[in-house]
């Protein structure tokens, strides 16, 4: 890009929008593999994806987050994203500070891959999301995953790491709700300006909403 673009306060926006768009596709692919998800109506699948997408992106990005440099690495160690980079995509510290705190806390739980994946499934299948029709079906699917997670921790996660682990994981879901809320607030502000919303991808606009249309 031309030099002056790098100095604009939104220089990272197109790049981050691409990354998020790619991640949304991964979230959809993941959701489709959750037992029972595809049996929900298309409307309920869409409602769940729209409301949980940013939470799953935050959850899955923990795998690339490093406590050493407090940064996310992307496609190898030479590409790293720090808070500073995300502020250049229009997000403020009101989102990014708690987000990094969340990443640190989650990293310290030292989850097994199985636990991490189950947590993402439980997050997607939240029965209290707005716009859901069949809340009780979603709840029963979520209950099933919660039971699997608790059984897994009991049988496969040795002490001392397993101590209150399930409760700590559920607390992370609560943290994600407030991160989601703050993200929505900041996204609304950002997408309200056509010069910024035009830098987003069609998928991002569809999932997070398009204030202009």
């Amino acid at each position: 890009p031309p030099m002056d673009i790098n100095f604009s306060p939104f220089s990272m926006l197109p790049h981050l929008a691409d990354l998020v768009s790619y991640s949304i596709q991964k979230v959809i692919g993941f959701a489709k593999m959750i037992p029972g998800f595809r049996d929900l109506t298309a409307e309920d699948q869409i409602a769940l994806l729209k409301s949980s997408a940013i939470e799953i992106i935050m959850l899955r990005s923990n795998q690339s987050f490093s406590l050493e440099d407090m940064a996310w690495s992307c496609g190898g160690n030479e590409f790293k994203y720090q808070i500073n980079d995300v502020t250049k995509a229009g997000h403020s510290l009101e989102l990014l500070e708690p987000l990094v705190k969340f990443q640190i806390g989650l990293k310290k739980l030292d989850l097994h891959e199985e636990e991490h994946v189950l947590l993402m499934g439980i997050c997607i299948l939240s029965p209290d999301r707005p716009g859901l029709q069949d809340n009780s079906l979603v709840e029963s699917l979520q209950d099933r995953l919660s039971e699997v997670l608790q059984t897994y921790i009991l049988c496969k996660h040795p002490p001392p790491g397993n101590r209150l682990l399930y409760a700590k994981m559920i607390q992370k879901l609560a943290d994600l709700r407030s991160l989601n809320e703050e993200h929505s607030k900041q996204y609304r502000c950002l997408s309200f300006k056509p010069e910024h919303s035009m830098q987003l991808t069609p998928l991002v606009l569809e999932v997070f909403g398009n204030e202009i249309s």
């Binding site: 596709q25 959809i28 489709k32 595809r38 298309a42 409307e43 699948q45 869409i46 994806l49 729209k50 716009g131 069609p202 998928l203 569809e206 999932v207 909403g209 398009n210 249309s213």
Partner: peptide, 20 residues
């Protein structure tokens, strides 16, 4: 809202993709 809930074309496409 009305437009949004009716459409979601990309989401629908990505959900149906690869289904047999």
């Amino acid at each position: 809202k009305k437009k949004e809930s009716k459409d979601h074309q990309l989401l629908r496409y990505l959900l149906d993709k690869d289904e047999k």
